[in-house]
Every structure is written in structure tokens, then in C-alpha cells.
Design a protein around this nucleic acid. Structure first.
Ligand SMILES: Nc1ccn([C@H]2C[C@H](O)[C@@H](COP(=O)(O)OP(=O)(O)OP(=O)(O)O)O2)c(=O)n1
Ligand SMILES: [Mg+2]
Ligand SMILES: [Mg+2]
Length: 730
DNA sequence: CATGGGGCATGC
DNA sequence: GCATGCCC
């Protein structure tokens, strides 16, 4: 049974921020504790509560004052305030310490949040089963619960007597190792944690929460049905939100066991293929999501809200907070560069006006605080500043991503340097491969200024290392070895990541394969991987269209012309008579697109087509001009492709310095509006209403992991489809 | 007025 | 590229 072959552990720290505070101030020990941020207003907002305080009814999201009322002797620890904002760096760093300990136990670790991580310990378990054939000592499972067994002893007794399926023996050994992991975490960091042990991530996560402070829980596969009988569907990760609710309502079910009564077809019909398949599997305790090697975050950001009256209106306030955020970000980026040998290439500037959130992405060329502040401010001014120079901003954020490795030494040099370094305990077989994974640098293309749509041309050279690599292996060989695949992201933090890489050949993964361009990377990867056969390989993609995987193409410089492009009138003025059509049919992809998103949607197409060889962006756009005008009934205006659309929220207006002679009171909001702004102000109200309506309506859609999306999973579980599904473009 | 700050994946 | 949903 393939889906029972793995042993997956989810480690989650207990009331983590509270533990961090307690360790720093041991006088708190044993007392009820909560961590708050921004103390002054009603005692601050609680974000973590320890177990004694939970017993008194204190919960997250409560105000500090309320917690004091419920639990008078509670200790309220405060999140450090730096530069006028809450700064959670200390908890992040504490989480890093924990992760370092976890790394010593497995080469397959996925950090899932500040305080939890998934570990695939299958190999460690199998190794132990091979080496030590003696019985499992139940005394070493003193903190372990087993779902479906009143007593852990009974489960172990059966396991030792060979009266259980081997999968359960694996889980029992997994429990043993997990006790060791948790003991090591406590010893090395002083923090307690809980754990779930199961055959997949979803179930490990689920059962971790079953026995929470300082305990661990094993879920044998045969106990899934018992567990599901009284388990609300909303307890499953990713079903806790809107989709989980509609799932329950649509199917008229409450518990997971009821979900299993539906066929895959029914579920696919109700929702979509991908979601249907995922739900069908999960209802049977099956989840094929791999533990993806990820030790560090893919983005580093900070943000702050300015609620109610505190909304930013004056230029100097906007400048001030932009500067403060840039300062924190700059500091954290510098540290990240030291620790992780990488540099972010993109920054996303986010803001909200009247609770309407928008964001704009721009290239990042410098980690210098002043540079970050400067470009952030330019964006904010461009999209938020009103005609009188004022603002109305209740949220600011900036987040850096698209990290690329900095390359000093050659990858080979660095690989051997790291080979000879530190060794870890537990599971030996792939340790060296693991070390190399974190060590392999990627090619770092110069931080040259590129337009958002421009792909960096790069020379696709036939590097020598490819002879040693997986690329020379056949598809069949790869499929046979699918169990040995490691899903990794660390080498390749961009979207190119997540290809499974064979353990043995990790070291041959030359830096030349890491390209700034998604397109060329995919092509070279495929071409080398599958050899000549690649050129004929045909598969069906998600939409059922036949796609042909092409071999490497001659280098082509992609021209990004200064395309004049139409945008919906909405971006600056709404049509007076809106019909109920909130969406238009995109002529490029034939999909329904919300009117408000149409401009950005075309940016999306342009970005995509820029990374393909054949399509001419101009031609596509010209076609769109016509269709958009007739179908969407919006007035097209011209915009340079390098310009970004104004968000809906830019309809906001100034309210100060106005009187009867130069202004009128808006019937809609009773605010005084400059005469010259009346037209666009009323447009704002229409836009806001439309925005609210659009965002209130849509039926919740599920966000399922990529592995459930394949159309023909049984026949193509591994090999080429694994790659194809990652690259729908192919 | 006002749970806030942070991160990930996905759809269009 | 941007918005959204889900989660910690
Ligand atoms: N909405 C949230 C949820 C969590 N956290 C922070 C504080 C928590 O301490 C930490 C870990 O989140 P958990 O959900 O794992 O909760 P705890 O670790 O606090 O408690 P538990 O013992 O239930 O895991 O993340 C947060 O800032 N905001
Ligand atoms: Mg926790
Ligand atoms: Mg957690």
C-alpha cells in the first residue's frame, strides 16, 4: 500500500510565544501567561496563551483587560515594540533554534510556520527496523497516545507480536524516534512541544492537536475511520475556513466519516476535479503531499495597520511609517543574506485605503533602508496620494521575495567544503546529500534592472556536470526510483522549485541549472532530463488540451515592446449604467475575469506570453483591444505596459480645507467634496459598492495542494507527469 | 475606531 | 502581476 509507506511527523511547539517569554523570565514559570501586542488599548491583543491561562478561559484574540478579568493573576508578556510597531523577531529566532535541532534527525524537513515543522522519517524508521530487530520498549513511549487504543501498551504488544500490519510497526518505531526528537528539542532549547505521527502530513497535523501539551499521538491507519466518525470536517487543515463551511452545507454533512459516502465523481461534480479527488482521498485517510525540503522562508516582510482614526493622511506620516517599515525590513534582509547566502530580487508594496487592499510588485536592487523606503514611497505616492497631496491609508506593508543564491565559490568547491563538515545523528544514508542541498549555490544573475515583464536572456550551455546528473537517466529509471525522490525548495526558492530530485544526484545539480528565467530553466531541465524522447512526449494538461513538450529552442531575446494597452474604464472612471455583469470573458484564456481585475489579468497574460517563444504580445493585445471593448462594454484607454493600474481605492478624496464655495456635500457619504472632484468621487462610491459586491459574492473555492490535480494519476503517478503538473505551461 | 503581524499557495 | 483564502 503505497500511501501507507511513509512515516510523517508534525512537531508543533506548545503555546510557543509564551514558552519563549517564560524561558526569558523564569519567574513566570507555572503561572498563567499570555502574550499581548500593543498593551495600551484595552490591554493589548492576545496572540498566545499558555495552558494554565487557557484553563481559566483566556483565549487568543481576547484583549489583555478581559484576560485579567478572567484570570486576575495572569502574566501579560508583551511583544517587543521596535520602531513603533510590534516586532516578532525573537519568536522567529526561537523557532529557528528549534528547527536546527529537528534538522539533526532527518534530511526531509519542511518548516510549516514559526513553531511547527513536518519531518519525513521513513528512512530512519526503516533503518532502525533493519538494524535492531528487538522489541519496542513501551517504557520509551511514556508520552505517547495511540488513536483507537485505550492503552499504548496494547498497541505496542500487538506490534511486538507481529499481530499488526507492518505499517503500524513503522508508526510505532516512528513514535519511538519522535519521543527522542522531542526530548532533544527540550534538552537543546528548553521548549516543550507536541507531535503527531501518521502516514501523511494531513493526518500528522490533525492528531498532533489531539493530546496537546507535551504529548504525542500516533494514528494507525486502521484507526482513521474511528477518528473520523466524530471529527468535524473543519478540523482538517484547509477546511477550517469558508470552503469547509460550504462543503458541510453543500453535502449536508458534519463529520469526516460522512464525506466518505460520496464518490469521487460526485465530489468532482460538486466542486472540481482537483478538489473532488483531494476530498475523496482525504476522506479515506490518503494524502500524497510530499514533505518538501524547506528550511527557510520564501519571503521576508513586515507590515502595520493604521485602524480608524490612526489612518495615515499626512505626507510626513506616510513617509515616517514607510521609513520605519523599510528600516525593519532592511535589517532583517541583511541578516538573512548573512545566514542564507541569498538576495531577494522583488519587493511587494502593499497598502489599504478604506480597507481596500492593493499591492504592487517592483524589482528590488538594494537592501539599503533608504533605497527601500524610497521606492516604497514612490509606489505609495503614485497610487495613494490624492490631488490635494493627502492620503487615507490604513495599512502599509512591504515584502521581499524571489530570493536567489549569491555565488561566490563554485558550486563544486562549496559542495566538497560542506561534505567534510558536520554530520548528524539518526539516519545516515542520505545525510551527505542533504548537506549538499543546503550548500549548493545557484547562479545569481546580476541585479540588473529589468522590467517586470522582461525575462533575462541566458545562455543555455551544455554544462559538463550534466553527464553526471539525473538528466542522463531515462524516464523509466526515474519512475522506478520515485520513492527516492526528494522534493526540495531550498536550492531553488523561485517558482522553478519543487522538482523532485534524486538523492544520489543532488550533488551533481550544478548551479548552471538554476536560472533566473523560469522558461529557459524548464526547457533545459526537461530536455536534458528526458533526452530526445522529450521532443515527442505528449501529455494532457489540466484542461485536457494536448500539449507538446518542446526540446530546447535557440536563444531568443524576448522583446518587450512599449505596448499601448487598453484598460477597463473602471480603473479611473466607471460607466454610468453598470449592467449586472461583474465579469468579462477574457479573450486570451476564455475564462471569466472580474471586471476590476481585468487590467491585471492582462498583465498576467503578458507576463506569461513573454516567457513563451511563439506568441507575440502585441498581436494578442491587439486582439484583446477589440474584444474587450465590445464584450465588456467598457471604454478603453491607453496605458503604457510599463505603467501599473490604479487601484479602486484611489478614488479616495481629501476632506480638509473645503467650504461651500469650493465644494459640495456628497449625498452618499455626507462628506464635503471639492467641486472638481465630485465626478470621480461619485465614481468612487460606485467602485466601492462594486468592489464590495464582487468580494462578497463568490462561492468559496477550495485551495488544494498541487498533487491532487493530475488527471490520470494511476497511470502517471510519477515520472513525467510529476514534472508536467508543476509546469502547466509545457 | 481596533486582534495584529506574518507567511504560503492558488486562481485568473 | 495581483487578489484571495487559509493558516500560524
Ligand atoms: N493567529 C495567530 C496564531 C498564532 N500566532 C503565533 C503565537 C503562537 O504562540 C505561535 C504558534 O501558533 P500555534 O497555533 O501553534 O499556537 P501555540 O503554539 O501558541 O499553542 P499550541 O500549544 O496550541 O500549539 O504563533 C499568532 O501570532 N497569531
Ligand atoms: Mg504551537
Ligand atoms: Mg503551530
Amino acid at each position: 500500500m503505497a500511501h501507507l509507506s511513509r512515516v510523517i511527523v508534525l512537531i508543533d511547539m506548545d503555546c510557543f510565544y509564551c514558552q519563549v517569554e517564560e524561558k526569558l523570565d523564569p519567574t513566570m514559570a507555572g503561572k498563567p501567561i499570555a502574550v499581548v501586542q500593543y498593551n495600551p488599548w484595552r490591554g493589548g491583543g492576545i496572540i498566545a496563551v499558555n495552558y494554565p491561562a487557557r484553563d481559566k478561559g483566556v483565549t487568543r484574540h481576547m484583549r489583555g483587560d478581559e484576560a485579567k478579568r478572567k484570570c486576575p493573576n495572569i502574566v501579560l508578556a508583551r511583544v517587543p515594540q521596535v520602531r513603533g510597531k510590534a516586532d516578532i523577531s525573537k519568536y522567529r529566532e526561537a523557532g529557528n533554534k528549534v528547527a536546527e535541532v529537528l534538522q539533526t534527525f532527518t534530511n526531509l524537513l519542511e518548516r510549516a510556520s514559526v513553531d511547527e515543522a513536518y519531518l519525513d522519517i521513513t528512512e530512519a524508521v526503516e533503518k532502525r527496523l533493519n538494524n535492531e530487530s528487538h522489541n519496542i520498549d513501551v517504557d520509551k513511549l511514556i508520552n505517547t497516545f495511540v488513536v483507537g487504543y485505550a492503552d499504548t501498551k496494547e498497541f505496542i504488544r500487538l506490534a511486538n507480536n507481529n499481530e499488526l500490519f507492518e505499517n503500524n510497526v513503522k508508526l510505532a518505531v516512528g513514535g519511538l524516534i519522535t519521543e527522542e526528537i522531542r526530548a532533544a528539542v527540550l534538552e537543546k532549547t528548553g521548549y516543550k512541544c507536541s507531535a503527531g505521527v501518521a502516514h501523511n502530513k494531513i493526518l500528522a497535523k490533525l492528531v498532533c492537536g489531539l493530546h496537546k501539551p507535551n504529548k504525542q499521538t500516533i494514528l494507525p491507519h486502521d484507526s482513521v475511520s474511528i477518528l473520523y466518525e466524530s471529527l468535524p470536517v473543519t478540523k482538517i487543515k484547509s477546511l477550517g475556513g469558508k470552503f469547509g463551511k460550504t462543503l458541510s452545507e453543500e453535502l449536508n454533512i458534519t463529520f469526516m466519516s460522512q464525506l466518505a459516502h460520496f464518490s469521487e465523481k460526485q465530489l468532482a461534480q460538486k466542486f472540481d476535479d482537483k478538489t473532488g479527488r483531494w476530498l475523496y482521498n482525504i476522506a479515506r485517510g490518503i494524502d500524497n503531499e510530499p514533505v518538501t525540503l524547506r528550511l527557510i522562508s520564501k519571503s521576508i516582510g513586515c507590515c502595520k495597520q493604521f485602524p480608524g482614526r490612526t489612518a495615515l493622511t499626512a505626507t510626513r506620516d506616510v513617509k515616517h511609517w514607510t521609513s520605519e517599515l523599510a528600516s525593519e525590513l532592511s535589517e532583517r534582509l541583511a541578516k538573512d543574506q548573512e545566514e542564507n547566502n541569498r538576495k531577494g530580487k522583488q519587493i511587494v508594496i502593499s497598502f489599504a485605503q478604506n480597507d481596500i487592499h492593493s499591492s504592487r510588485t517592483i524589482p528590488l536592487n538594494s537592501y539599503e533602508q533608504s533605497k527601500i523606503a524610497e521606492c516604497a514611497l514612490a509606489v505609495i505616492d503614485k497610487f495613494c496620494q490624492r490631488s490635494d497631496g493627502s492620503y487615507s491609508i490604513n495599512f502599509l506593508g512591504m515584502s521581499v521575495g524571489n530570493f536567489q543564491e549569491i555565488n561566490q565559490k563554485s558550486s563544486i568547491t562549496k559542495f566538497f567544503l560542506n561534505m567534510s563538515k558536520k554530520q548528524k545523528i539518526s539516519d545516515e544514508k542520505n545525510i551527505q546529500d542533504t548537506e549538499s542541498i543546503t550548500a549548493i549555490p545557484q547562479k545569481c544573475s546580476e541585479a540588473k534592472e529589468i522590467s517586470a515583464l522582461e525575462e533575462e536572456p541566458n545562455n543555455q550551455t551544455e554544462d559538463d556536470a550534466s553527464d553526471l546528473s539525473i538528466y542522463s537517466r531515462t524516464t523509466e529509471e526515474m519512475e522506478m526510483d520515485s520513492d527516492d525522490l526528494i522534493y526540495y525548495e531550498d536550492i531553488c526558492p523561485n517558482s522553478v522549485s519543487s522538482e523532485p530530485i534524486h538523492c544520489f544526484t543532488i550533488s551533481s545539480q550544478s548551479s548552471e541549472e538554476m536560472e533566473s528565467s523560469r522558461r529557459s530553466s524548464m526547457q533545459s531541465f526537461f530536455a536534458k532530463y528526458f533526452g530526445d524522447k522529450t521532443n515527442e512526449t505528449q501529455e494532457e494538461d489540466q484542461q485536457g488540451q494536448t500539449v507538446t513538450v518542446r526540446g530546447p529552442q535557440p536563444e531568443e531575446k524576448i522583446e518587450v515592446p512599449e505596448v499601448e494597452r487598453p484598460i477597463p474604464m473602471l480603473s479611473f472612471r466607471l460607466p454610468q449604467n453598470l449592467n449586472e455583469e461583474n465579469s468579462v470573458l477574457c479573450d486570451v484564456c476564455n475564462k471569466k475575469v472580474k471586471l476590476v481585475n481585468f487590467g491585471h489579468h492582462m498583465d498576467f497574460h503578458e507576463a506569461k506570453s513573454a516567457s513563451k517563444q511563439n506568441s507575440s504580445p502585441t498581436a494578442t493585445l491587439n486582439k484583446y483591444v477589440k474584444e474587450a471593448q465590445s464584450k465588456a462594454k467598457v471604454t478603453a484607454v491607453k496605458r503604457k505596459s510599463t505603467e501599473k493600474l490604479k487601484p479602486i481605492s484611489s478614488f479616495l478624496l481629501a476632506t480638509d480645507g473645503l467650504n461651500e464655495s469650493n465644494s459640495e456635500v456628497c449625498l452618499e457619504c455626507s462628506k464635503r467634496i471639492k467641486l472638481c472632484d465630485i465626478a470621480s468621487h461619485t465614481d468612487y462610491h460606485v467602485a466601492k459598492k462594486l468592489h464590495d459586491e464582487i468580494n462578497a459574492r463568490p462561492l468559496p473555492k477550495s485551495i488544494m495542494p498541487s498533487t491532487s490535480k493530475k488527471k490520470y494519476p494511476e497511470t502517471n503517478e510519477n515520472g513525467i507527469t510529476k514534472f508536467l503538473k508543476k509546469y502547466p505551461e509545457l
